[in-house]
Nucleic acid binder design. Sequence first.
DNA 1: GTGCATGTTGATCACTTGATCAATCGCATC
DNA 2: GATGCGATTGATCAAGTGATCAACATGCAC
Lengths: 204, 204
Amino acid sequence: MPAPRTRRSADQRRAEITDAARELALAEGLSAVTLRAVAARVGVASGLVAHYAPSMDELVASTFGDIVGGELAELAMLLSGIADPTAQVATLLATVLDGSRTDVTLVWVQSWGMGERNEALAAEARSRMDEWQQFIAALLHTGVASGDFRVEDTQGVAWLLLGMIDGLSAHTLVRWGESEGRRELLVRAVEPLLGLEPGRLRSR
Amino acid sequence: MPAPRTRRSADQRRAEITDAARELALAEGLSAVTLRAVAARVGVASGLVAHYAPSMDELVASTFGDIVGGELAELAMLLSGIADPTAQVATLLATVLDGSRTDVTLVWVQSWGMGERNEALAAEARSRMDEWQQFIAALLHTGVASGDFRVEDTQGVAWLLLGMIDGLSAHTLVRWGESEGRRELLVRAVEPLLGLEPGRLRSR
DNA sequence: GTGCATGTTGATCACTTGATCAATCGCATC
DNA sequence: GATGCGATTGATCAAGTGATCAACATGCAC
Protein backbone atom coordinates (compact mmCIF):
# COMPACT_ATOMS: atom_id res chain seq x y z
CA MET A 1 0.00 0.00 0.00
CA PRO A 2 1.47 3.31 -1.04
CA ALA A 3 1.59 5.69 1.88
CA PRO A 4 -1.55 7.82 2.01
CA ARG A 5 -0.67 11.29 0.90
CA THR A 6 -1.42 13.92 3.49
CA ARG A 7 -1.37 17.60 2.71
CA ARG A 8 -0.35 20.27 5.19
CA SER A 9 0.16 23.98 5.04
CA ALA A 10 3.66 25.01 4.12
CA ASP A 11 4.33 26.42 7.57
CA GLN A 12 3.08 23.30 9.25
CA ARG A 13 5.23 21.06 7.09
CA ARG A 14 8.23 23.26 7.63
CA ALA A 15 7.73 22.90 11.37
CA GLU A 16 7.42 19.12 11.10
CA ILE A 17 10.67 18.98 9.19
CA THR A 18 12.64 21.14 11.59
CA ASP A 19 11.24 19.13 14.49
CA ALA A 20 12.24 15.86 12.92
CA ALA A 21 15.70 17.20 12.21
CA ARG A 22 16.11 18.26 15.83
CA GLU A 23 14.94 14.91 17.15
CA LEU A 24 17.31 13.08 14.84
CA ALA A 25 20.25 15.24 15.81
CA LEU A 26 19.60 14.71 19.49
CA ALA A 27 19.14 10.98 19.11
CA GLU A 28 21.98 10.18 16.72
CA GLY A 29 24.02 13.30 16.19
CA LEU A 30 24.21 15.95 13.50
CA SER A 31 25.67 13.52 11.01
CA ALA A 32 22.40 11.60 11.08
CA VAL A 33 20.47 14.60 9.82
CA THR A 34 20.21 13.37 6.29
CA LEU A 35 17.78 14.16 3.49
CA ARG A 36 16.24 10.72 3.53
CA ALA A 37 16.44 10.19 7.29
CA VAL A 38 14.50 13.38 7.93
CA ALA A 39 11.98 12.50 5.24
CA ALA A 40 11.47 9.04 6.71
CA ARG A 41 10.94 10.43 10.17
CA VAL A 42 8.31 12.88 8.94
CA GLY A 43 6.78 10.14 6.80
CA VAL A 44 7.19 12.00 3.57
CA ALA A 45 9.02 11.73 0.25
CA SER A 46 12.65 12.79 0.22
CA GLY A 47 11.95 15.44 -2.35
CA LEU A 48 9.72 17.30 0.03
CA VAL A 49 12.49 17.84 2.52
CA ALA A 50 14.69 19.14 -0.27
CA HIS A 51 11.80 21.36 -1.30
CA TYR A 52 11.63 23.08 2.08
CA ALA A 53 15.29 23.09 3.05
CA PRO A 54 17.57 25.47 1.14
CA SER A 55 20.24 22.78 1.36
CA MET A 56 21.11 20.05 3.80
CA ASP A 57 24.11 22.00 5.04
CA GLU A 58 21.82 24.81 6.03
CA LEU A 59 19.26 22.49 7.57
CA VAL A 60 22.00 20.95 9.68
CA ALA A 61 23.24 24.39 10.66
CA SER A 62 19.81 25.67 11.65
CA THR A 63 19.08 22.43 13.51
CA PHE A 64 22.24 22.96 15.50
CA GLY A 65 21.16 26.53 16.20
CA ASP A 66 17.72 25.39 17.35
CA ILE A 67 19.15 22.87 19.76
CA VAL A 68 21.82 24.94 21.44
CA GLY A 69 19.63 28.02 21.39
CA GLY A 70 16.96 26.06 23.20
CA GLU A 71 19.48 24.81 25.70
CA LEU A 72 20.59 28.32 26.53
CA ALA A 73 17.03 29.58 26.82
CA GLU A 74 16.23 26.74 29.18
CA LEU A 75 19.23 27.52 31.31
CA ALA A 76 18.45 31.24 31.33
CA MET A 77 14.97 30.40 32.53
CA LEU A 78 16.35 28.27 35.32
CA LEU A 79 18.81 30.90 36.47
CA SER A 80 16.29 33.71 36.31
CA GLY A 81 14.63 32.17 39.33
CA ILE A 82 17.78 32.63 41.39
CA ALA A 83 18.64 35.97 42.92
CA ASP A 84 22.10 35.47 44.36
CA PRO A 85 24.84 35.66 41.68
CA THR A 86 27.01 33.15 43.49
CA ALA A 87 24.17 30.67 43.57
CA GLN A 88 23.55 31.36 39.90
CA VAL A 89 27.08 30.40 38.93
CA ALA A 90 26.97 27.39 41.22
CA THR A 91 23.78 26.26 39.54
CA LEU A 92 25.23 26.94 36.10
CA LEU A 93 28.21 24.68 36.79
CA ALA A 94 26.13 22.00 38.43
CA THR A 95 23.59 21.94 35.64
CA VAL A 96 26.01 21.86 32.77
CA LEU A 97 28.11 19.11 34.29
CA ASP A 98 25.39 16.85 35.60
CA GLY A 99 25.91 14.48 32.70
CA SER A 100 22.29 14.54 31.61
CA ARG A 101 22.92 16.43 28.37
CA THR A 102 25.26 14.27 26.40
CA ASP A 103 22.93 14.63 23.45
CA VAL A 104 23.42 18.37 23.29
CA THR A 105 27.12 17.99 23.98
CA LEU A 106 27.50 15.65 21.04
CA VAL A 107 25.87 18.26 18.84
CA TRP A 108 28.30 20.89 20.07
CA VAL A 109 31.36 18.75 19.53
CA GLN A 110 30.22 17.68 16.08
CA SER A 111 29.66 21.29 15.09
CA TRP A 112 33.31 22.04 15.76
CA GLY A 113 34.46 19.01 13.82
CA MET A 114 32.05 19.38 10.91
CA GLY A 115 32.56 23.12 10.56
CA GLU A 116 35.53 22.33 8.37
CA ARG A 117 33.18 21.02 5.69
CA ASN A 118 30.02 22.98 6.35
CA GLU A 119 30.52 26.71 6.31
CA ALA A 120 26.96 27.50 7.36
CA LEU A 121 27.40 25.28 10.39
CA ALA A 122 30.71 26.90 11.28
CA ALA A 123 29.12 30.33 11.16
CA GLU A 124 26.22 29.21 13.30
CA ALA A 125 28.61 27.67 15.82
CA ARG A 126 30.57 30.90 16.09
CA SER A 127 27.38 32.84 16.61
CA ARG A 128 26.06 30.48 19.28
CA MET A 129 29.36 30.46 21.13
CA ASP A 130 29.24 34.23 21.24
CA GLU A 131 25.74 34.01 22.61
CA TRP A 132 26.86 31.72 25.40
CA GLN A 133 29.88 33.84 26.19
CA GLN A 134 27.77 36.95 26.43
CA PHE A 135 25.32 35.17 28.67
CA ILE A 136 28.05 34.16 31.08
CA ALA A 137 29.63 37.59 30.90
CA ALA A 138 26.30 39.15 31.84
CA LEU A 139 26.10 36.79 34.80
CA LEU A 140 29.53 37.90 35.93
CA HIS A 141 28.72 41.52 35.36
CA THR A 142 25.69 41.26 37.61
CA GLY A 143 27.81 39.69 40.31
CA VAL A 144 30.41 42.40 40.04
CA ALA A 145 27.81 45.13 40.19
CA SER A 146 26.28 43.63 43.31
CA GLY A 147 29.68 43.29 44.93
CA ASP A 148 29.55 39.51 45.08
CA PHE A 149 32.32 38.98 42.50
CA ARG A 150 35.57 40.76 41.89
CA VAL A 151 36.47 40.30 38.24
CA GLU A 152 38.54 42.60 36.09
CA ASP A 153 38.38 41.00 32.67
CA THR A 154 34.74 39.95 32.58
CA GLN A 155 34.84 38.99 28.91
CA GLY A 156 37.99 36.94 29.29
CA VAL A 157 36.78 35.08 32.34
CA ALA A 158 33.53 34.31 30.55
CA TRP A 159 35.47 32.76 27.68
CA LEU A 160 37.58 30.78 30.09
CA LEU A 161 34.55 29.45 31.92
CA LEU A 162 32.90 28.47 28.68
CA GLY A 163 36.04 26.68 27.59
CA MET A 164 36.21 24.74 30.82
CA ILE A 165 32.57 23.79 30.57
CA ASP A 166 32.88 22.67 26.98
CA GLY A 167 36.02 20.66 27.60
CA LEU A 168 34.64 18.84 30.60
CA SER A 169 31.36 18.21 28.80
CA ALA A 170 33.16 16.80 25.80
CA HIS A 171 35.01 14.41 28.07
CA THR A 172 31.76 13.00 29.35
CA LEU A 173 31.05 11.82 25.79
CA VAL A 174 33.95 9.43 26.04
CA ARG A 175 34.45 9.11 29.77
CA TRP A 176 31.30 9.52 31.73
CA GLY A 177 30.95 8.88 35.42
CA GLU A 178 33.13 10.50 38.07
CA SER A 179 31.38 13.76 37.24
CA GLU A 180 30.64 14.30 40.90
CA GLY A 181 34.22 14.66 42.01
CA ARG A 182 35.16 16.83 39.08
CA ARG A 183 32.53 19.44 39.77
CA GLU A 184 33.98 19.84 43.22
CA LEU A 185 37.38 20.48 41.71
CA LEU A 186 36.07 22.77 39.01
CA VAL A 187 34.35 24.86 41.61
CA ARG A 188 37.61 25.24 43.47
CA ALA A 189 39.29 26.46 40.29
CA VAL A 190 36.54 28.92 39.46
CA GLU A 191 36.25 30.61 42.84
CA PRO A 192 39.50 32.56 42.61
CA LEU A 193 38.58 33.69 39.11
CA LEU A 194 35.50 35.36 40.53
CA GLY A 195 37.30 36.75 43.55
CA LEU A 196 35.37 34.44 45.85
CA GLU A 197 36.73 32.94 49.02
CA PRO A 198 37.25 29.17 48.89
CA GLY A 199 34.07 27.25 49.55
CA ARG A 200 31.59 29.96 48.63
CA LEU A 201 30.57 28.29 45.37
CA ARG A 202 30.16 24.94 47.03
CA SER A 203 27.45 25.98 49.45
CA ARG A 204 24.38 24.63 47.76
CA MET B 1 49.79 7.09 -19.83
CA PRO B 2 48.98 4.53 -17.17
CA ALA B 3 50.95 5.23 -14.01
CA PRO B 4 54.18 3.21 -13.92
CA ARG B 5 53.79 0.40 -11.49
CA THR B 6 56.32 0.43 -8.67
CA ARG B 7 56.81 -2.46 -6.32
CA ARG B 8 57.79 -2.04 -2.67
CA SER B 9 58.20 -4.38 0.24
CA ALA B 10 55.05 -4.89 2.26
CA ASP B 11 56.49 -3.06 5.26
CA GLN B 12 57.57 -0.13 3.17
CA ARG B 13 54.17 0.19 1.53
CA ARG B 14 52.44 -0.10 4.85
CA ALA B 15 54.56 2.77 6.12
CA GLU B 16 53.76 4.88 3.06
CA ILE B 17 50.07 4.33 3.62
CA THR B 18 50.07 5.20 7.31
CA ASP B 19 52.17 8.27 6.53
CA ALA B 20 49.76 9.43 3.85
CA ALA B 21 46.83 8.87 6.19
CA ARG B 22 48.49 10.95 8.89
CA GLU B 23 49.27 13.78 6.49
CA LEU B 24 45.73 13.78 5.19
CA ALA B 25 44.24 13.83 8.66
CA LEU B 26 46.43 16.73 9.71
CA ALA B 27 45.69 18.70 6.56
CA GLU B 28 41.96 18.10 6.21
CA GLY B 29 40.75 16.22 9.24
CA LEU B 30 39.96 12.60 10.00
CA SER B 31 36.94 12.63 7.73
CA ALA B 32 39.26 13.13 4.76
CA VAL B 33 41.01 9.84 5.45
CA THR B 34 39.24 7.96 2.73
CA LEU B 35 40.13 4.84 0.82
CA ARG B 36 40.63 6.69 -2.44
CA ALA B 37 42.12 9.83 -0.94
CA VAL B 38 44.85 7.84 0.77
CA ALA B 39 45.48 5.81 -2.37
CA ALA B 40 45.75 8.97 -4.47
CA ARG B 41 48.21 10.52 -2.06
CA VAL B 42 50.44 7.45 -2.11
CA GLY B 43 50.03 7.26 -5.87
CA VAL B 44 48.59 3.78 -5.87
CA ALA B 45 45.41 1.93 -6.77
CA SER B 46 42.58 2.07 -4.25
CA GLY B 47 42.60 -1.66 -3.87
CA LEU B 48 46.08 -1.59 -2.43
CA VAL B 49 45.05 0.55 0.49
CA ALA B 50 42.21 -1.82 1.19
CA HIS B 51 44.68 -4.68 0.94
CA TYR B 52 46.87 -3.30 3.73
CA ALA B 53 44.24 -1.72 5.98
CA PRO B 54 42.00 -4.10 7.91
CA SER B 55 39.20 -1.60 7.32
CA MET B 56 38.95 2.12 6.88
CA ASP B 57 37.48 2.50 10.36
CA GLU B 58 40.59 0.93 11.79
CA LEU B 59 42.91 2.95 9.59
CA VAL B 60 41.22 6.12 10.79
CA ALA B 61 41.49 4.95 14.39
CA SER B 62 45.17 4.06 14.14
CA THR B 63 45.88 7.31 12.29
CA PHE B 64 44.30 9.19 15.15
CA GLY B 65 46.41 7.20 17.58
CA ASP B 66 49.60 7.95 15.64
CA ILE B 67 48.93 11.66 15.62
CA VAL B 68 48.00 12.21 19.23
CA GLY B 69 50.57 9.70 20.41
CA GLY B 70 53.22 11.64 18.55
CA GLU B 71 51.99 14.88 20.03
CA LEU B 72 52.30 13.52 23.54
CA ALA B 73 55.76 12.10 22.88
CA GLU B 74 56.87 15.44 21.54
CA LEU B 75 55.57 17.22 24.59
CA ALA B 76 57.15 14.70 26.94
CA MET B 77 60.45 15.28 25.20
CA LEU B 78 60.10 19.01 25.63
CA LEU B 79 59.22 18.77 29.31
CA SER B 80 61.95 16.26 30.07
CA GLY B 81 64.44 19.08 29.59
CA ILE B 82 62.89 21.04 32.42
CA ALA B 83 63.71 20.25 36.01
CA ASP B 84 61.36 22.44 38.03
CA PRO B 85 57.82 21.00 38.21
CA THR B 86 56.26 24.44 38.28
CA ALA B 87 58.08 25.42 35.12
CA GLN B 88 57.00 22.12 33.57
CA VAL B 89 53.33 22.85 34.12
CA ALA B 90 53.79 26.43 32.94
CA THR B 91 55.39 25.15 29.76
CA LEU B 92 52.67 22.55 29.33
CA LEU B 93 49.96 25.18 29.43
CA ALA B 94 51.86 27.60 27.24
CA THR B 95 52.63 24.96 24.64
CA VAL B 96 49.19 23.50 24.38
CA LEU B 97 47.49 26.86 24.09
CA ASP B 98 49.88 28.61 21.75
CA GLY B 99 47.46 28.11 18.89
CA SER B 100 49.98 26.40 16.64
CA ARG B 101 48.35 22.98 16.81
CA THR B 102 44.90 23.45 15.41
CA ASP B 103 45.52 20.48 13.14
CA VAL B 104 45.94 18.11 16.06
CA THR B 105 43.07 19.74 17.89
CA LEU B 106 40.76 19.14 14.95
CA VAL B 107 41.70 15.48 15.04
CA TRP B 108 40.89 15.31 18.74
CA VAL B 109 37.53 16.99 18.37
CA GLN B 110 36.58 14.86 15.40
CA SER B 111 37.44 11.71 17.31
CA TRP B 112 34.88 12.60 19.95
CA GLY B 113 32.22 13.36 17.35
CA MET B 114 32.94 10.39 15.08
CA GLY B 115 33.25 7.90 17.90
CA GLU B 116 29.52 7.48 17.71
CA ARG B 117 29.89 5.78 14.33
CA ASN B 118 33.38 4.27 14.56
CA GLU B 119 33.83 2.00 17.54
CA ALA B 120 37.54 1.44 16.90
CA LEU B 121 38.07 5.18 16.92
CA ALA B 122 36.10 5.60 20.12
CA ALA B 123 38.21 2.96 21.82
CA GLU B 124 41.42 4.56 20.62
CA ALA B 125 40.24 7.96 21.85
CA ARG B 126 39.50 6.57 25.29
CA SER B 127 42.89 4.98 25.42
CA ARG B 128 44.74 8.13 24.33
CA MET B 129 42.83 10.27 26.78
CA ASP B 130 43.90 7.93 29.54
CA GLU B 131 47.46 8.24 28.34
CA TRP B 132 47.30 12.02 28.54
CA GLN B 133 45.66 11.98 31.91
CA GLN B 134 48.30 9.69 33.30
CA PHE B 135 51.02 11.87 31.88
CA ILE B 136 49.62 14.94 33.60
CA ALA B 137 49.05 13.00 36.80
CA ALA B 138 52.69 11.93 36.79
CA LEU B 139 53.71 15.53 36.36
CA LEU B 140 51.63 16.48 39.37
CA HIS B 141 52.91 13.57 41.38
CA THR B 142 56.48 14.66 40.80
CA GLY B 143 55.65 18.15 41.95
CA VAL B 144 53.95 16.85 45.06
CA ALA B 145 56.89 14.62 45.89
CA SER B 146 59.31 17.49 45.53
CA GLY B 147 57.16 19.70 47.70
CA ASP B 148 56.40 22.19 44.92
CA PHE B 149 52.71 21.30 44.66
CA ARG B 150 50.10 20.48 47.25
CA VAL B 151 47.48 18.30 45.60
CA GLU B 152 45.25 15.76 47.26
CA ASP B 153 43.34 14.23 44.38
CA THR B 154 46.11 13.96 41.81
CA GLN B 155 44.01 11.92 39.39
CA GLY B 156 41.05 14.25 39.59
CA VAL B 157 43.10 17.38 39.10
CA ALA B 158 44.79 15.76 36.12
CA TRP B 159 41.40 15.10 34.54
CA LEU B 160 40.30 18.63 35.24
CA LEU B 161 43.43 20.10 33.68
CA LEU B 162 43.01 17.94 30.62
CA GLY B 163 39.41 19.02 30.31
CA MET B 164 40.35 22.67 30.49
CA ILE B 165 43.08 22.23 27.92
CA ASP B 166 40.80 20.36 25.53
CA GLY B 167 37.99 22.85 25.87
CA LEU B 168 40.15 25.87 25.29
CA SER B 169 41.89 24.16 22.40
CA ALA B 170 38.58 23.29 20.80
CA HIS B 171 37.56 26.91 21.02
CA THR B 172 40.58 27.95 19.01
CA LEU B 173 39.16 25.93 16.12
CA VAL B 174 36.28 28.33 15.89
CA ARG B 175 37.59 31.39 17.68
CA TRP B 176 41.28 31.82 17.35
CA GLY B 177 43.21 34.87 18.48
CA GLU B 178 43.06 36.29 21.97
CA SER B 179 44.94 33.21 23.14
CA GLU B 180 47.44 35.39 24.96
CA GLY B 181 45.02 36.82 27.47
CA ARG B 182 43.37 33.52 28.13
CA ARG B 183 46.54 31.74 29.11
CA GLU B 184 47.05 34.38 31.75
CA LEU B 185 43.59 33.67 33.13
CA LEU B 186 43.96 29.92 32.89
CA VAL B 187 47.18 30.09 34.84
CA ARG B 188 45.42 32.00 37.58
CA ALA B 189 42.75 29.29 37.77
CA VAL B 190 45.24 26.45 37.84
CA GLU B 191 47.52 27.80 40.55
CA PRO B 192 45.18 27.15 43.47
CA LEU B 193 44.52 23.64 42.16
CA LEU B 194 48.20 22.89 42.59
CA GLY B 195 48.50 24.64 45.92
CA LEU B 196 50.66 27.35 44.39
CA GLU B 197 50.70 30.96 45.46
CA PRO B 198 49.28 33.38 42.87
CA GLY B 199 51.82 34.32 40.24
CA ARG B 200 54.11 31.32 40.59
CA LEU B 201 52.99 29.76 37.32
CA ARG B 202 53.34 33.00 35.44
CA SER B 203 57.04 33.42 36.03
CA ARG B 204 58.48 32.29 32.75
C1' DG C 1 67.64 -16.61 -18.37
C1' DT C 2 63.53 -18.64 -16.08
C1' DG C 3 60.09 -19.35 -12.55
C1' DC C 4 56.96 -17.77 -9.52
C1' DA C 5 55.77 -15.74 -4.98
C1' DT C 6 53.70 -11.76 -4.02
C1' DG C 7 52.89 -6.89 -4.54
C1' DT C 8 49.60 -4.39 -7.48
C1' DT C 9 45.88 -3.08 -10.47
C1' DG C 10 41.33 -1.28 -11.64
C1' DA C 11 36.89 -2.69 -12.78
C1' DT C 12 32.98 -3.71 -10.23
C1' DC C 13 29.35 -4.20 -6.58
C1' DA C 14 26.24 -2.42 -3.24
C1' DC C 15 25.26 1.40 -0.78
C1' DT C 16 24.66 6.33 0.71
C1' DT C 17 24.66 11.06 -0.04
C1' DG C 18 22.29 15.74 -1.93
C1' DA C 19 19.73 17.51 -5.52
C1' DT C 20 16.36 18.00 -9.48
C1' DC C 21 11.88 17.97 -11.69
C1' DA C 22 7.95 16.35 -14.42
C1' DA C 23 3.95 14.28 -12.94
C1' DT C 24 0.37 13.72 -9.60
C1' DC C 25 -3.37 14.77 -6.65
C1' DG C 26 -5.41 17.01 -2.24
C1' DC C 27 -8.22 20.63 -0.99
C1' DA C 28 -9.82 25.42 -0.50
C1' DT C 29 -12.31 28.46 -3.47
C1' DC C 30 -15.79 29.63 -6.30
C1' DG D 1 -19.68 19.92 -8.05
C1' DA D 2 -15.81 21.70 -10.99
C1' DT D 3 -11.41 24.38 -11.13
C1' DG D 4 -6.74 25.25 -10.34
C1' DC D 5 -3.20 26.54 -7.02
C1' DG D 6 0.32 24.46 -4.84
C1' DA D 7 1.79 20.72 -1.82
C1' DT D 8 3.70 16.19 -2.71
C1' DT D 9 5.66 12.29 -4.96
C1' DG D 10 9.31 9.20 -6.44
C1' DA D 11 12.20 8.11 -10.10
C1' DT D 12 16.53 9.73 -11.55
C1' DC D 13 21.25 11.76 -11.72
C1' DA D 14 25.94 12.43 -10.36
C1' DA D 15 29.09 11.88 -6.93
C1' DG D 16 31.27 9.54 -3.30
C1' DT D 17 31.84 5.73 0.16
C1' DG D 18 34.12 0.83 1.52
C1' DA D 19 35.01 -3.55 -0.07
C1' DT D 20 36.14 -7.52 -3.23
C1' DC D 21 38.81 -10.16 -6.48
C1' DA D 22 40.43 -12.08 -10.85
C1' DA D 23 43.99 -10.72 -13.52
C1' DC D 24 48.51 -8.82 -14.03
C1' DA D 25 53.59 -8.02 -13.68
C1' DT D 26 57.72 -7.06 -10.97
C1' DG D 27 61.90 -8.37 -9.26
C1' DC D 28 64.20 -11.77 -6.50
C1' DA D 29 65.84 -16.73 -6.06
C1' DC D 30 67.73 -20.18 -8.51
